[in-house]
């Protein structure tokens, strides 16, 4: 199975690996997947309260090379976007960028789910009572 150069680069040199302080009100955390399924993705966003822009994004992923590359790419794309722009990221864009083979499309779906889940967590924390 030959993977694309972009995918291999994200796998070998993953961007934005790490953990944000999930207790902060401007940090949204998404944890998707399950160990039994062979992949778990945790994606976090830190939103600048004044501008509403995502100023930082971090991930950790348990999974295959495509899952790690998909989440690394997702964090790259998230930085500098507004919440509305971020929520519009489509898994097929990840598939195209990394040239994921058909059996690995679920990795991109998981990344999209992780983005949406992190945003939902952020919104829930910041919902006006």
């Amino acid at each position: 199975m030959a993977y694309s150069e972009k995918l291999l680069d994200h796998f070998k040199n993953p961007k934005n690996v790490g953990t944000l302080d999930k207790s902060k009100s401007n940090v949204g955390t998404g944890l998707v997947g399950a160990p039994e399924c062979g992949d778990v993705m945790r994606l976090q966003i830190e939103v600048d309260d004044a501008s509403g822009m995502i100023k930082d994004a971090k991930f950790k992923t348990f999974g295959c090379g495509s899952a790690i590359a998909s989440s690394s790419l997702a964090t790259e794309w998230l930085k500098g976007k507004t919440i509305d722009e971020a929520i519009a990221i489509d898994n097929m864009a990840i598939v195209e960028e990394l040239a994921l083979p058909p059996v690995k499309i679920h990795c991109s779906v998981l990344a999209e789910d992780a983005i949406k889940s992190a945003i939902a967590d952020y919104k829930e924390k910041n919902a006006k009572a």
Binding site: E36, V40, K60
Partner: peptide, 24 residues
């Protein structure tokens, strides 16, 4: 393992079997 969220959770002493995973 440095990349793995479940390794981090394991290291923090979280019982992974008790986590409600969002299975897909």
């Amino acid at each position: 393992r440095d990349l793995s969220p479940i390794w981090e959770m394991y290291k923090e002493g979280i019982d992974l079997d008790a986590v409600e995973w969002a299975e897909h």
